[in-house]
């Protein structure tokens, strides 16, 4: 897997599209978290409460989860590029197996998710130390930092879905449209007609459950309770979905001509 990742890095590092989207994502993460803290609530800056350790980590994971489309789109571009350049075909000719192709892209997904999670941790530390009223309780700084781990898993889930869609339709534009349509519209429509007890296990809902809204209690009071998995409970379905997306991608590659 590391040798596969090394090959992927040879393609990625000189690729300007990769850097543009990565920098855009990091910039937007910063802006989102900054903007959310500067909303005035009851004449008070929301940030004062938002940027407090250890609550900060949950807020940060929740806010960051709104920006998962960009890493997904990046993965779609990387996969569909390989079709456009016919390099998947060449790599199979030169000695890769179909499984290697999926593993290589999956290794990029893991790398990107890890990079973004580390970036978000630094973002949290920066905001927390700069804005928060730290009462000297240094031990609480990393309490609840597991929220960022759930965010990492969520990223892997989104990008695995994106990879599968890209392998499925092979065309960049079409894949991006399909990815956005499913994540933003289609599944919600299906959820709408499905009982909560079942739809909580749907891909988008399980993924969303990994980074719950910290104000969920208030929301549920207003909108009525709906059954949602806790992050811990959502972990298993999400891991299963990631495995499924990788397996389906492999099956697509196996059954079709390159």
């Amino acid at each position: 897997m590391t040798s596969l990742l090394r090959i992927e890095l040879r393609k990625l590092l000189p690729y300007s599209t990769f850097w543009v989207l990565l920098v855009l994502q990091c910039f937007l993460l910063f802006v989102f978290f900054y903007a959310r803290g500067n909303v005035m609530v009851n004449g008070q800056m929301a940030g004062a409460e938002l940027y407090q350790f250890p609550k900060l980590w949950m807020h940060l994971a929740y806010v960051s989860s709104f920006l998962n489309l960009i890493p997904g789109i990046l993965i779609i571009i990387l996969v569909s590029d390989e079709y456009a350049f016919r390099t998947l075909r060449q790599q199979v000719i030169d000695g890769f197996s179909r499984a290697n192709l999926v593993q290589a892209k999956y290794s990029v997904i893991l790398l990107l998710a890890a990079l973004l999670a580390v970036y978000v941790v630094f973002l949290g530390l920066g905001f927390g130390l700069f804005y928060g009223n730290n009462t000297g309780n240094e031990t609480s700084m990393f309490t609840n930092v597991q929220a960022i781990f759930y965010y990492l898993v969520q990223l892997v889930g989104y990008m695995s879905l994106a990879m599968f869609i890209a392998f499925l339709v092979r065309k960049t534009g079409l894949a991006i449209m399909l990815f956005m349509a499913y994540t933003l519209v289609v599944e919600r429509l299906i959820q709408w007609k499905t009982p909560d007890g079942i739809d909580q296990y749907f891909p988008m809902k399980s993924l969303g459950a990994l980074t719950p809204n910290p104000h969920a209690e208030v929301e549920q009071l207003i909108l009525g309770a709906s059954e949602v998995l806790t992050p811990m409970q959502a972990l298993m379905p999400v891991v299963l979905y990631v495995t499924l997306f990788c397996f389906l991608s492999y099956q697509l590659l196996r059954s079709r001509d390159l």
Partner: peptide, 27 residues
């Protein structure tokens, strides 16, 4: 086996040498 099928398949944004490094790694 060394093979060339139909078209030359390489990454357009990489140099000739960088492309061959990828090929070398795969092989």
């Amino acid at each position: 086996i060394g093979a060339l099928l139909e078209t030359p398949n390489f990454y357009p944004y990489l140099t000739g040498e960088e492309n061959l490094r990828i090929t070398a790694d795969v092989k």
